[in-house]
Design a binder for these strands. Structure first.
Length: 947
RNA sequence: GCGGAUGUGGCGGAACUGGUAGACGCGCUGGUCUUAGGAACCAGUGCCAAUGGCGUGGGGGUUCGAGUCCCUUCAUCCGCACCA
C-alpha cells in the first residue's frame, strides 16, 4: 500500500525540478488564463477555505491543460495591508520581515496542495518591482484626470486610524475591525470611478458571472434616472436644487427638506427658528450613521422659517431640515410629496403639513389611454361608506338580491352635497339606519369602474370613502324598492376581505384596516394642471420637457456609487507618488524617479497621521519642477489599488521597463476563468473592472473586461453547520488532514462532498470515503493485465462517464464528475478477479489525473508508463459507444409507473404500445377500464390514460 | 421594508429542454472470507397498516405526466437599507 504523503512530496519535488507546469507564452495552442484570487499572507496557516478555492480550481485548470489548452496559471500574494502593520505595532517586528516570513510559509503550504501553478510568474505586491508599477498606475490615472485630491467628508475608522472607502464600510462599521465609522472632513485622494459608472453597469450584461454578483454590483452602482429641479427661496436670492425621480408629482410637493449639514441652511434660517435649527443640527452631527439611518426611528425635523417657491405653480411651501435627507445622495435636498411617498407622508402627518393627492388609483387601468378608450370620468361622484357597528366588531354591508353581491353602502353624491352628507343620506336610504356619525374621510380618492345596478350601465367615476359608525341601531322602514334590491347584513373584518364583491371595496377595507399610508402605486394624475389624466410615464416626460424648456430644471441620472477614496494614513502600503511644492503645488513624481521607495525605518504608532510623516528622510525632497525644497505625500495607497491590476502583471511579472508588455498581455488577457469569494463583489471586482476600462482608454489594453467568467466557491462550514471560527472552536485544520490522508484525498473530498458553489458543513466521515476510493484505484491498478481485450460493458460506462465528466467539469460540478469516475471504477471492480486490460486502467488514471495529481502520477509510473501523466491528453469519449440499441422505459397508467419494459430503440410506437399492454401489472390497471389514449414519448416513457 | 438565494431519504448531495425522483458516497441491515476486524467483497436500503398507498417546506393550479412551469404561503440564509 502506498504512503500517500511520501509519494506526494516526492512528485512535488520532481515537478518543481522539471518545471513541469512551465508556461510557454509562445505556444500556438489556444490560451487559457485561469486565475484564483490571490491571498493575503497572514501569519495563520492556510485554512480550509484556501484549499477549497485553490485545490478545486486547480483540478479544473489541470483538466483544461490535459484537454489541449495552453494554460496560464499563476499565483502570488497581496502582501501590503493593515494586519502586518498592526502586528508590527504589537510586536515590533517590521512588516517587511513578518510578511516575507509569512509568504515563505504559505508558499510551502500552497506547494503541498500540488497545484499546477507556474511559480516563475509569482507576484508579491509589497516588493519594489511591483509597487513601482502600482505607483505608475496612479500617475497615469492622475494624468488622465482620474485621480484627484479633495477635501470631503470621509469615513474614518477611529480604531484603525485611517480613512476607508465607501465599500469598506459595512452597515456603518469598519469592514476590518468592526468599529463604528465616523465622518470627518479630510483632504484625500480619490479615483474617479464614477466616470465609468454607466459602463460598469452596462457591461455586466456581457459577463459570464453569477447573477447575484452582477446584481450586487448593479445595486451598488445604484443608477437612478430623475431630474434636478430648482427652487427659489422666497424673499431672497438664494435657491437650491433637489433631485427627484418623480418630477411628475411636483404639483403635490407641499414642503422641501434640506439635509441638516447643507451650508444653505444657515443662510435661510429665520431669526425665530435659528435656535431650534442649530440645536437640531448639533444633535444630527452627534449621531452615528447607523442611528441616523435606522428605519424604525421616528421622523424628526425642524422648520427653518423659510419658504421655497414651487416652480410649476408659484406656491410657497415651507423648508424644513431633517436627518432623513442624506447630504451624500443627490443634492442633499428634496421636494416632499407626502401623498405619494411613505417617508414624506409620515413626516407630514407628524408635523401637520398639508397633503395634496396628485395621483389617483383607477380600477379601470392607469393612464390617459384607459380613460380615452373607456368611459369618461363623470361629473357625478360616488361615496363609499364603511360603517361600524355600535357595539360589535362588525361592518355594515348590503347584499344585492339579484346577483348576491356584497358591498359597502355606496351611492352618488348629489350636487351641492359633500361626500359626508351623501354618506349619511345613502346609509339611511339603503339600510334605514339613522343614528349615524361620520368619523373621518379616507385620504385618497380613486376611480372605479362603477356598475349602477338599477340603470345597468358602467361608469368610470370618482370615489370618496368615508368611515362612519352607528351610535344606536335605530332603524326606519326602508322603501319597497330598497327592500327588493338588497338585504342589510353585518360582517366582521375577516369575512369582509373574502366576501366583498368589488375590487374597490376590498381596496377600501384594506386601506382602512392597514391605517392607510401614502399612495405609492401608479395612477392617473390629478390636481396637476397640464398633467391631469396622464399616466406616470407620459407625465414624467411631459414634466421633464416642461422643466427644461422653462429652465426650472433638467433630466439627470445619479448613481449611488461614489468616487473611490484611495489614500490611507498607514505605513504598509505603496506610497502615493506625489510631491507638494510651495510654488508649484501638487507635482506628480516623474516616472523615471519611480519607485518612491517605502522607507524601512519608521515609527508605527498610529495616531491618525501617516507614519511616513514622521520620517524626515522620506518626507523631504526637492520639487521635480523647480528644484526647490518640497515634501512628499505621506499617505499610502489602499491595498485594493495593488490588487486592481495584478492580473495584468502576471504574464509579464519580471518586466523592469514597463508594468507589462502591451502585446503580450493583450494576447494572454482577459482572464478566462476567475475563481474566488463573493465577498469581493463590490470592492476588488468592481475596482479591477474600473482599472481595466481606464487602461483601455489610455490605449494599453484592447479588451473591456478583465474577468470573462467568474465562479465563487461556497463556504465550508464547521461540522456544526456554523461558520468556522476560532472562537466557536469548530475549525478544521487542513494540515492535519493532509498529514493523515494526503493532499489528494483532501482535494478529493473537497470536490466530491459539496456542490462547489454552495459549500456546506464539513464531515469527517466523508474524507474517509475518498481515502477508500483512492485505495480501490490503487488496488485496481495492481490488477492490470497486458491484453488488448475490449469489454463492451466497460466501454459503455467508460465513454458515458467521460462525456459526463467533461460536461460537468465545464459547469464546475466536481461532485458529479467524481461520481462518474466512481461509477467507472465500480464496473472495473466487477472484472478485478480476472484482471483488467491495461487500456482500462490507463483510462482510469487519466480521467482521475486532474483530481488526484500525485496518486495518478505514481500509479502511472508504477504500470510502466512514461513521465508525466500530466503531459498526456485527457481521454475523449467516442460517440459510437454511447449509441443505445436497447432501452428500458417506464410504463405508466394514469401517470403512475406500473411496469418497465425493454424496447429496441427503433421499435415503432405500435410495438411499444403492444409490449406495454402485455405487461401483467399494466393489465391489472387497464383490464376493466376504457383506454382513453396512449402517449408514447420515444425512448423515454409511455403513459396509458384510462377511465 | 426592498432585492437575491435556498428548502429533495438518517446524512452529504444527484436529476438534461416537464418524462421511471433519490445518481455517487456516507451511514445502516444481512451475508462471504477470516483468530479477529473499524480491511475487502456480495446483497439490500425513501417512508408506510406493503400484489397497494404516500412521497421533493405547506396549500392551490396547468398537464396524459410536475422537484422542474404558474399562483399563493411558510421557513432559513445573504446582500442593501430613510437612495428622494
Amino acid at each position: 500500500m502506498l504512503n500517500f504523503n511520501e509519494i506526494e512530496e516526492k512528485w512535488e519535488k520532481k515537478w518543481e525540478e522539471d518545471k513541469l507546469y512551465k508556461f510557454d507564452n509562445k505556444s500556438d495552442k489556444k490560451k487559457l488564463y485561469c486565475l484564483e484570487m490571490f491571498s493575503y499572507p497572514s501569519g495563520a496557516k492556510l485554512h480550509l477555505g484556501h484549499w477549497y478555492n485553490y485545490s478545486v480550481a486547480d483540478t479544473w485548470a489541470r483538466f483544461k491543460k490535459m484537454d489541449g489548452y495552453n494554460l496560464f496559471h499563476p499565483m502570488g500574494f497581496d502582501a501590503f495591508g493593515l494586519p502586518a502593520e498592526n502586528y508590527a505595532i504589537k510586536t515590533g517586528i517590521h512588516p517587511a520581515i513578518s510578511t516575507d516570513k509569512n509568504i515563505e510559509t504559505m508558499e510551502k503550504q500552497l506547494r503541498r496542495i500540488g497545484g499546477s501553478w507556474d511559480w516563475d510568474y509569482e507576484i508579491k505586491t509589497c516588493k519594489e518591482d511591483y509597487y513601482k508599477w502600482t505607483q505608475w498606475m496612479f500617475l497615469k490615472l492622475y494624468e488622465k484626470g482620474l485621480a484627484y485630491k479633495k477635501e470631503a467628508p470621509v469615513n474614518f475608522c477611529p480604531s484603525c486610524n485611517t480613512v476607508l472607502a465607501n465599500e469598506q464600510v459595512i452597515a456603518g462599521n469598519c469592514e476590518r475591525c468592526g468599529s463604528t465609522v465616523i465622518r470627518k472632513n479630510m483632504s484625500q485622494w480619490f479615483f474617479k470611478i464614477t466616470d465609468y459608472a454607466e459602463e460598469l453597469l452596462n457591461d455586466l450584461d456581457k459577463l459570464d458571472w453569477p447573477d447575484r454578483t452582477k446584481n450586487l454590483q448593479r445595486n451598488w452602482i445604484g443608477k437612478s434616472v430623475g431630474a434636478y429641479v430648482d427652487f427659489k427661496v422666497d424673499g431672497t436670492n438664494e435657491k437650491f436644487t433637489v433631485f427627484t425621480t418623480r418630477s411628475d408629482t411636483l404639483f403635490g410637493a407641499t414642503y422641501c427638506v434640506l439635509a441638516p449639514e447643507l451650508p444653505l441652511v444657515d443662510k435661510i434660517t429665520t431669526k425665530e427658528q435659528k435656535e431650534a435649527v442649530d440645536k437640531y443640527k448639533e444633535e444630527a452631527c452627534k449621531q452615528s450613521d447607523i442611528e441616523r439611518t435606522s428605519t424604525t426611528k421616528e421622523k424628526t425635523g425642524v422648520f427653518t422659517g423659510a419658504y421655497a417657491i414651487n416652480p410649476v405653480n408659484g406656491k410657497k411651501i415651507p423648508i424644513w431640515i431633517s436627518d432623513y435627507v442624506l447630504s451624500t445622495y443627490g443634492t442633499g435636498a428634496i421636494m416632499a410629496v407626502p401623498a405619494h411617498d411613505e417617508r414624506d407622508y409620515e413626516f407630514a402627518k407628524k408635523f401637520n403639513i398639508p397633503i395634496i393627492q396628485v395621483l389617483a388609483k383607477s380600477f379601470y387601468g392607469t393612464g390617459n389611454s384607459a380613460i380615452k378608450e373607456g368611459m369618461p370620468i363623470t361629473e357625478r361622484n360616488v361615496v363609499n361608506v364603511i360603517v361600524k357597528h355600535p357595539t360589535e366588531d362588525k361592518y355594515l354591508c348590503v347584499k344585492n338580491k339579484e346577483f348576491n353581491w356584497i358591498d359597502f353602502v355606496m351611492g352618488g353624491i348629489e350636487e351641492k352635497e359633500t361626500p359626508r352628507e351623501a354618506a349619511i343620506r345613502e346609509v339611511k336610504e339603503e339600510t334605514g339606519y339613522t343614528d349615524i356619525e361620520i368619523l373621518k374621510d379616507l385620504d385618497f380618492i380613486y376611480y372605479d369602474n362603477f356598475y349602477a345596478a338599477h340603470k345597468k350601465v358602467n361608469r368610470h367615476i370618482t370615489c370618496y370613502t368615508v368611515i362612519a359608525k352607528l351610535n344606536t341601531l335605530n332603524q326606519i322602514e326602508r322603501t319597497e324598492q330598497e327592500k327588493n334590491l338588497a338585504d342589510v347584513i353585518w360582517i366582521n373584518k375577516n369575512e369582509l376581505l373574502d366576501s366583498l364583491t368589488t375590487e374597490a371595496h376590498k381596496y377600501d377595507a384594506t386601506r382602512y384596516f392597514n391605517n392607510e399610508g401614502a399612495f405609492t402605486e401608479d395612477g392617473i394624475h390629478i390636481n396637476s394642471d397640464f398633467l391631469n389624466g396622464l399616466n406616470k410615464e407620459d407625465a414624467l416626460n411631459k414634466m421633464n420637457a416642461y422643466l427644461e424648456e422653462k429652465g426650472y430644471g433638467k433630466k439627470t441620472t445619479t448613481y449611488k456609487l461614489r468616487d473611490w477614496l484611495v489614500s490611507r494614513q498607514r505605513y504598509w502600503g505603496a506610497p502615493i507618488p506625489i510631491i507638494y511644492c510651495e510654488d508649484c503645488g501638487i507635482v506628480p513624481v516623474p516616472e523615471k524617479d519611480l519607485p518612491v521607495k517605502l522607507p524601512m525605518a519608521v515609527e508605527f504608532t498610529p495616531d491618525g497621521e501617516s507614519p511616513l510623516k514622521k520620517c524626515n528622510e522620506f518626507m523631504n525632497c526637492t520639487c521635480p519642477k523647480c528644484g526647490k525644497k518640497a515634501v512628499r505625500e505621506a499617505d499610502t495607497l489602499d491595498t485594493f489599488v495593488c490588487s486592481s491590476w495584478y492580473y495584468l502583471r502576471y504574464p509579464d511579472a519580471h518586466n523592469d521597463k514597463e508594468p507589462f508588455n502591451k502585446e503580450l498581455i493583450n494576447k494572454i488577457l482577459p482572464v478566462d476563468k476567475y475563481i474566488g469569494g463573493v465577498e469581493h463583489a463590490c470592492m476588488h471586482l468592481l475596482y479591477a473592472r474600473f482599472f481595466t476600462k481606464a487602461l483601455r482608454d489610455m490605449g494599453y489594453l484592447n479588451f473591456d473586461e478583465p474577468f470573462l467568467s467568474l465562479v465563487h466557491q461556497g463556504t465550508i462550514l464547521g461540522p456544526d453547520g456554523e461558520k468556522m471560527s476560532k472562537s466557536k472552536g469548530n475549525t478544521v485544520a487542513p494540515d492535519s488532514l493532509v498529514e493523515e490522508y494526503g493532499a489528494d484525498v483532501l482535494r478529493g473530498y473537497l470536490m466530491f462532498g459539496f456542490n462547489y458553489i454552495d459549500g456546506g458543513p464539513w464531515t469527517d466521515d466523508g474524507i474517509v470515503a475518498i481515502n477508500k476510493f483512492y485505495r480501490k484505484v490503487e488496488r485496481l491498478t495492481n490488477a492490470i493485465k497486458e491484453s488488448d481485450e475490449r469489454i463492451s460493458d466497460i466501454d459503455k460506462v467508460l465513454h458515458n462517464s467521460l462525456k459526463v465528466i467533461r460536461e460537468d467539469l465545464d459547469k464546475f460540478q466536481f461532485n458529479t464528475s467524481m461520481a462518474k469516475i466512481m461509477e467507472y471504477t465500480n464496473i472495473l471492480v466487477k472484472y478485478e478477479k480476472s484482471s483488467i486490460p491495461r487500456y482500462y486502467i490507463e483510462q482510469l488514471l487519466l480521467m482521475l489525473a486532474p483530481f488526484a495529481p500525485h496518486i495518478t502520477e505514481e500509479l502511472w509510473a508504477s504500470i510502466g508508463n512514461k513521465y508525466s501523466i500530466h503531459n498526456e491528453t485527457y481521454p475523449m469519449y467516442d460517440e459510437k459507444y454511447l449509441v443505445e440499441t436497447e432501452k428500458e422505459i417506464a410504463v405508466q397508467v394514469n401517470g403512475k409507473v406500473r411496469a418497465t419494459i425493454t424496447i429496441n430503440i427503433d421499435d415503432s410506437e405500435e410495438i411499444v404500445k403492444e409490449k406495454a399492454l402485455k405487461e401483467d401489472n399494466v393489465k391489472r390497471f387497464t383490464d376493466d377500464k376504457e383506454i382513453v389514449k396512449i402517449i408514447v414519448i420515444k425512448g423515454k416513457i409511455i403513459n396509458i390514460v384510462v377511465k
